[in-house]
Design a protein around this nucleic acid. Structure first.
Lengths: 206, 206
DNA sequence: GAAATTTTGTGAGCGCGCTCATTTTTCTCC
DNA sequence: GGAGAAAAATGAGCGCGCTCACAAAATTTC
């Protein structure tokens, strides 16, 4: 049992590494699952014993990178900055880790993480909820209003995806235009948060 | 030549009507191009003489609805309201016309109108640029700063897509939650516009 | 260690969107 | 109206993601 479990794990990572290699080499859509399978030394169907879809293979790679980014971010001390700066740093940590995939991620993010209900990628959902959880924590630690509404969180995710979309196609040197958009998006988000706080205070009279 | 041109037009609209019917009946992804073709009385391949892709068939339907919405919106007088209200009304006009498609649009919008560069649907691009053009006009007529930056327009499109995404899955009665999100999004956008105006005024000193 | 059982691997094949060589129809010109 | 050219329709077929009936291998049971 031990041997088999280990072998399975090895196959899984071999598939992941092969997929990463090919996605980066030829792009996500130009890489076929048969390509990945044959280069990984397994049958075409076997790949789907390990990952339910090609999409999920992609999101798993992104999730790995973003998990690492999250660890990095939480390891650093972020004591005195204001919320907008924290959110900026948080998103930047993710972009840094995703950097190698930048030009290849668009199709993966587009359908794997989109706010449209259709999406069913479970790794994509995990990425979203983990990211939003961190954001909610940062908000909670920054002011009196502990629980941001789901409307606000939807707004955040919209803005974040907009940044990712821009970033994935950003042709400016070192993607510096992305920094401007990210900065503006996060500050805008914080201001909408503050507005909601005011509204809540108002309505708490009744 | 006349006769053929007319026949072609008829076939084209028959395809569109058939597609609309089936998309609404079974959803976009559950409808195959063969379904559409056979119900429209043409061969499978003929469909692609009229539309380059299934995706384009979908975006064409949306574009029709949104064109009509635009006409409706521009016909009404919008004299005294402030910019946020105008933008709200503009977006609402679109949502009203898209209403029948609400639960079916997600996959079409997701890939046809997404801000991700990958997308190549030409009707989708037309929808975006027409919509943004109207928005830019509304902005221009509302204040001194005639030309909003492309960063701002990107932000607008991000927020608008976020609203569409929410709306397509909104389970609240009459999608009233969508109204709240739309309102908040548009007001947020306007406030970011004003911020940019201030910044521009500041930097115009140098 | 053989038999039974469970787990894992396999690849032929399905249905999809879409292409393209070919056939069929329509138009043009005398 | 018949010959030739142009336009349009056709459907067999491709490559894709993915499934599934079956085979092979590993594990458990005796």
């Amino acid at each position: 049992m031990r041997i088999t479990a280990k072998a399975k794990q090895e196959t899984r990572t071999r598939i992941l590494e092969t997929a990463r290699k090919l996605f980066l080499e030829k792009g996500f859509e130009q890489t076929t699952t048969r390509d990945i399978a044959s280069l990984a030394g397994i049958a075409a169907g076997t790949l789907f014993n390990y990952f339910p879809s090609k999409e999920e293979l992609g999101t798993t790679l992104l999730a790995e990178a973003l998990d690492e980014a999250k660890t990095d971010f939480l390891a650093k001390r972020h004591g005195e900055e204001d919320l907008a700066e924290l959110l900026f740093a948080h998103a930047m940590a993710g972009l840094r880790m995703l950097a190698p995939y930048r030009t290849a991620v668009a199709p993966i993010i587009e359908v794997g993480m989109s706010p449209f209900a259709s999406n069913g990628s479970c790794e994509g959902n995990r990425i979203r909820s983990e990211h939003l959880e961190t954001v909610a924590d940062l908000i909670a630690n920054s002011g009196p209003n502990t629980q941001p509404s789901f409307v606000v969180m939807h707004l955040y995710w919209t803005l974040y995806l907009g940044v990712l979309a821009f970033w994935s196609g950003d042709e400016s040197p070192n993607q510096e235009d992305t920094l401007a958009i990210l900065d503006q998006s996060m500050r805008l988000f914080v201001s909408s948060l503050n507005e909601e706080r005011v509204v809540k205070e108002d309505s708490s009279d009744e």
